[in-house]
Amino acid sequence: MNWRSIWAIYQFEMARTFRTIAQSVLSPVISTVLYFVVFGSAIGSRIDAVDGISYGAFIVPGLIMLTLLQQSVSNASFGIYFPKFIGTMYELLSAPMSFIEIVMGYVGAAATKAVMIALIILATSALFVDLRIEHPFWMLAFLLLTALSFSLLGFIIGIWAKSFEQLQLIPLLVITPLVFLGGAFYSASMLPPFWEVVTKFNPVLYLVSGFRWSFFGVADVPVGISLFAVTGFLLLCLGFIWWIFRTGWRLRE
């Protein structure tokens, strides 16, 4: 394993994050605060406790997941799309690195940034609501697994995209709706029976549910299934990336 090369990419990507620290950290924090003001205080005060948890606290895991998914996908997709866009991809492809090392560098940095922001949001929410975390180990495990698998997805999107528009397409059209419909702001049990079944087909439900379980010990789906789902998604993305580098799809002529 060529650790120096991986470290070089990781450091370079993290430097980009810190160069734009204000927009990297500030904007997700501000939007989270807005969610709290609107959903937590204004509307939330009129909503009963869900599963015995005050609505303001109930939405915290969902909000963190929303940001985590968006950040993971957009960081990783931008990270690998940018060298393609400015033409420095040649250097990565001619470096003595294997595909897995390139992925580790970019995905590692994207996931780190996403987890960092998720933790900042967690700290911010602690200022607004009374939080308890029943299973801190599992909370971190879900954070890391989700950040990694969606950074891998972002990496794939970055390789696939041929323009900045395409880069934005999947986060906007797929990720955000799936999170909103995946029980970020409600419990699946609050839905009419038909929609409760439909929601079960939404992969993000399993993430939000598992993550919420690590906070409050209550879940829409058994936590084992959540863990199984996120691990399966991770492997699926890894398999696809392995195929990309094997065939040189959109990379090598």
Partner: peptide, 22 residues
Amino acid sequence: TIEPFETVLNTAKFSRGLFGKK
């Protein structure tokens, strides 16, 4: 083709690291 926002020295450092050199 170079990273527009990075400094000259960091760009060279990155390349050296990428090739696995100390």
